[in-house]
Write a protein that binds this DNA or RNA. Structure first.
Lengths: 200, 200, 200, 200
DNA sequence: CATGAATGAGAGTTCATTCAT
DNA sequence: GATGAATGAACTCTCATTCAT
């Protein structure tokens, strides 16, 4: 039995290592420039080996997608301990942006990249997406109960806040803010987060 | 003389038809998945024919990009006659979203799609992009002069508003709102635009 | 009748103009870089027009070939008036080299380029080649009769002299002497011609 | 261990087989008419396979070129043991011609074929060419020291002899002597070599 | 389990040639 | 007679995927 488990574990480790390499390559060179050969080179295995752990390139892509959501979910949870609903909401937005900046390729994969039609069925994984969206709504609802967001529809507020942070993240990740110097961009982003918090 | 003109027109029509087909494909499949062959197939011509009208694949991409910005700029101008700065600003946001919904292909190309590194140099055409951004800032400045946006940095306000509408547009175009019924999405969007206008 | 003749003449002029343009292009850009489009552009006619005057690209190539031989033959004749057989022979060699240097592309076409298998039948035009070779032999024979080339076979002598000048011409034309400075090459060539004349 | 070696050997054999096929094609059809597809067809492998063994078409061409020069250099060395400088010089000429006749493909590639401009930079390998030329000059110099070639410039003599043998080789290889019966050609060539030796 | 050799399909691009006008 | 639009076949090169070893 121990053998079985060790094999299991080794299998998992290999998958992890492949996924890590892929993610790095996605980040360094962009999705379309990642080839199976490059991934194999990075982990110093042969190309064929990749196919022992993943059905095809799409599965790697998809697995990363899932891992992205898991990571994302954790990031969100990490601010849920904050008591004050408004503070929590602010932290929520910051965490969102931070995730996007730290893992731009995850973010890209999860919220920007065109999802191949054939993959879309598997999107039970949006479950994971929605789970996170539920947290946002929970936070807003609690802020409402604390007297904020007067006269605003919950769904509208959630949608608005999500759009807002996603706008910032996606403009940045897809290079539409390249002309803004790094320093100043930081200022703009925190300015924007503060600005939006006036809505609460 | 009529002959010359007819030929001219036919040439133009052909270019249009190629651009149309390409735009659709770009949207459906993403830049990197659009091949010259697919474009040719779509218009039912041979591949070589494309090269009679465009120097290479990049030129098609680039032309579409330019047209998108031109169209976009016009849409923005069309609301500049509105006197009241706040009304104008609201109309501005609506026009932005409307453009994205009416021409999702253009919008995608202009603000979402990953631009191949080698094409990026030509992006003097971001001039066109910036020209539009200037309009936004002008509108905000005039609103400020009319007493709105108290204590807010102009650049921060502009960046925020842009991020906000871009967030809505890009989530929608890239299918992250598919689970929301069309009707309700309309409600959410106008709700969001109204919500944000509280910031003014 | 005059009409017929004029048309004939115009047809000839057009062919000439195409051949001229082609030869220039061959020289400027090398055989493999000459396209029908470039020829057409050079004479400022459309591509299709070329096919009204020549069956295909090969025919242009072949016609140039023939013109080359004609030109070549003339060059040879031009020194036949020299009385002294040895002087004539020297002049012959010089004329040969001069032709090659003046019309490297003709020379290339005639004596170096790979002759497409399918064209080889048409090589009645080697008649023209052989006609020239006959002149060489005639000159040698007369030198022999004047007491030179003692104990040498006529055919061997002719073959040797031809090989010699062809060697110089072809090494130069195909760029195998690029490392030799122009000036010094001139010196070498005339030196070589003088050197060889010791054999007479 | 034996496995490793066998694989090594197979890899080498494959390269050889590709080079062989390419060499034949270069000779039959000329550099510009040799396509990767034709090479692949000849060895009955897919096109992609070629790229497992060679970076690109140029590398195949270049490798052949180098091999040709290596072979050539060896052939030259093999007569350097001859003591008598005149005998050695004669043998040199014969060896040159023999190389050309035995390996017309190599000879063509090395001394006749039009070299694509972009490849020409790599021609540090003309080092190998020049190394051979130095041997020729050495032989002539020693003949001079032994009292031959009175009053002749060394460079001129070397250039002349090279031109002479190259003339013979290239006329033959490029089919300009097709009308001469094989037997008689042999006679002409040895006759010519003897004839030229009168110059010594 | 891992490999490396091989492939087929497909990418962008060029060009000689044809043909309706 | 001349055109310009169109084509089909060819080019070099890349890559995800398979499979015998």
């Amino acid at each position: 039995m121990g053998i079985k488990e060790r094999k299991e574990r080794q299998k998992t480790e290999m998958r992890e290592s492949i996924l890590d390499a892929s993610l790095k390559l996605f980040t360094e060179e962009g999705y379309e420039n990642v080839t199976m050969r490059k991934i194999a080179d990075k982990i110093e295995y042969s190309v064929g080996t990749l196919y022992l752990y993943f059905k095809d390139k799409g599965e790697i892509f998809f697995e990363l997608h899932s891992r992205g959501f898991a990571e994302f979910y954790n990031k969100q949870l990490s601010i849920q301990h904050i008591k004050d609903p408004i503070e929590r909401l602010k932290a929520h937005g910051e965490a969102y942006i931070r995730f996007a900046m730290e893992f731009p390729e995850y973010y890209d994969l999860m919220f920007i990249s065109r999802v191949p039609a054939k993959e879309i069925e598997k999107f039970e994984h949006w479950e994971e997406g929605e789970r996170t969206y539920e947290i946002l709504k929970l936070n807003i609802r609690q802020a409402m109960e604390a007297g904020y967001f007067k006269g605003v529809d919950l769904e509208v507020a959630a949608f608005s806040l999500w759009s807002f942070v996603h706008g910032i993240a996606s403009l940045s990740i897809r290079g539409r803010l390249k002309m803004i110097p790094e320093q100043y961009l930081q200022f703009l982003i925190s300015g924007a987060l503060q600005f939006i918090s006036k809505l609460y």
